[in-house]
Design a protein around this nucleic acid. Structure first.
Lengths: 135, 135
DNA sequence: CTTGACCTTCCAGTAACTAGAAGCCCCATA
DNA sequence: TATGGGGCTTCTAGTTACTGGAAGGTCAAG
């Protein structure tokens, strides 16, 4: 324990809900760069931990690392417009909608095949037949 | 054009709907290993092309490469039981259902944030506020 | 003989970590 | 003081399924 307010990589990770490995990675790609103590240990200030928590939440919402980088810079920019943020979020949302639609289509097709397959000890299998069909 | 029935990597790719690069990759990981002509060119037999089409379809259904490897071996095994195939497909389907559920939850949360953000020139932004909140 | 479209191999990059190795640092206990 | 354990450091490499590009060989047509 030291009486400055910084914490080690493990403590910062615990505070942000991220593994220490991830924090080192985030430093490497320039997202959150902590100070260093005399012994070489990373020293995360409260503001760093705050950024990490921000990142953790943005990542949980599915934003890419590059989106997160942008969101962080918007967060720090007092002259930002909320329209920029909303636009980023909307694009991300559209991408998610697209992904969901794709997965639902896959799932429907897969469900059809599964229903058609009796699933017993015999080798006859509509799933394999469909995969192998020459169309 | 040669009078044996084999085709080059480009032709096989066209026939299967896959890029030649992918065919080389599939050879590298042992999925479909073509013969070679005297000049070193890959020589895909009709059965190879058939396997490639099988792979293309299975991949389009979202099966992983390792699942595909397994599906191919089941396809070739006359003693397989359709239950094995159905089980694999069902597991994959469950994984897709899970993914869809996750994405829908994300999407709902994002939608809420987007709706709350007025999206104009002002910097006030509920999206960033939420990301930054200390809970 | 040249041109252009193929083909070959090999290397590197993608997204976002994650695992593991080798070694240093610090604190507590015996 | 020695030692043990946990956490810290750096570095490399692996994950998924390709994809891009460079350097060079091959082949049919003109």
């Amino acid at each position: 324990m030291r009486d400055d307010a910084t914490v080690t990589v493990g403590e910062a990770g615990d505070a942000a809900g991220l593994p220490a490995k991830t924090l080192r990675y985030y430093e490497q790609i320039g997202l959150v760069i902590p100070d260093r103590r005399g012994n070489g240990y990373r020293a995360y200030r409260p503001s760093d931990v705050h950024r990490l928590r921000f990142l953790k939440r943005a990542r949980s919402l599915g934003f890419s690392i590059e989106d997160c980088r942008l969101l962080l810079s918007l967060y720090r920019d007092p002259d930002r417009s909320s329209a920029e943020v909303k636009s980023l979020a909307t694009q991300h949302c559209d991408a998610i909608d697209l992904k969901i639609a794709e997965l639902r289509s896959l799932r429907a097709e897969l469900g059809r095949l599964i229903d058609a397959c009796h699933g017993d000890h015999r080798p006859d299998c509509p799933i394999l037949d469909e995969l192998a069909s020459r169309d």
